[in-house]
Design a protein around this nucleic acid. Structure first.
Lengths: 166, 166
DNA sequence: ATCATTGCAAAAGATTTGCAAGGTC
DNA sequence: GACCTTGCAAATCTTTTGCAATGAT
């Protein structure tokens, strides 16, 4: 149901891993197993996720490549800093999504199933520009969420189960 | 610095107090001192606020008309429910603003001083409509935040102090 | 008098931090 | 070996909840 962005990916020369390596080196930070584990998992598929969900999917305590909760938090912050991920808040929690190499977009959120749907709109840039001019505001970014009911949930028959309150 | 909406206020027949009275009566809820205290304070001026700030401004424990923290939270939820306030999240906290009798608008937020600036854009509705059509999504609302640096903060000289991270 | 509401204390949920032990360069 | 990182435990911050006492109708 989400739009296919595969043909409009922003062209990038480095993989997320390579890009992160650069970031680490430029700051004299170390390439640890934990950082590799999280990075690999996060970029193995495109999805929005919260920390709880991510931790559930990573190896449990006792298993190989376990990453503790504080380290997951610390690492996600680094990814945002490195420009790999974007972060926003919804329902009292942080939501992360791919940024590096991924085209600009905004989100619809279904109030029923809490799923995200991405869309792109050029008009947002018009709004940003005109508002910036009116207020002599130097825009650095924006966040638009459109709330409502998705088409699946609008059909009472084959109703989808409510997703965990993302 | 915020746009003057005084001439475009949505016309309403009831004051927030009256409107809330209706809400209470329709639900067999009671008109308590605490609810009156919070309502009166919140609608004594137009401003965005978080719970902490509100509580600081309300009477302290021991003083007349003290309202406990849990009751403030409970009451704000009721105001949102009653259509008096809108709630959104920023910086890991809830921010509230007037809704009842106040025209639709969105916000710019200065990354430096954390101040809010309101603006109105009809184009948002175009975006909402066109996206809704594309995805057969039934839109119920939206939230747009534009981030950047406000004109005051952009001037290095008379720099404003950084506001508490609202 | 009935029953909603309050304040208190405590819980809950998300995220952060101090610090000693361990890992990377 | 130097020093960045990690995991643990505990703290922090925001918000919520159980419950007995209080107050509105």
């Amino acid at each position: 149901m989400a739009k296919d962005y595969s043909l409009q990916h922003v062209s990038v020369s480095l993989s997320p891993q390579e890009r992160f390596d650069e970031y680490l080196q430029s700051r004299a930070m170390r390439n640890t197993q934990q950082r590799r584990t999280v990075l690999e998992h996060v970029f193995s598929h495109h999805d929005h996720f919260d920390v709880e969900t991510l931790i559930e999917q990573l190896p449990d305590k006792g298993e190989a490549n376990y990453v503790s909760r504080p380290t997951v938090y610390r690492t996600l912050t680094e990814f945002v800093d490195a420009g790999l991920l974007r972060k926003f808040e919804l329902g009292g929690r942080a939501i992360y999504e791919h940024d590096y190499g991924y085209p600009e977009h905004d989100h619809m959120v279904c109030n029923q199933c809490n799923q995200f749907f991405e869309f792109h709109s050029d008009e947002i840039n018009n709004i940003r520009e005109s508002v910036a001019q009116d207020y002599r505001f130097r825009v650095t970014g924006h966040r638009l969420l459109i709330f409502g009911i998705c088409s699946d949930c609008a059909q009472p028959r084959r109703q989808k189960r409510k997703q965990d309150l993302i």
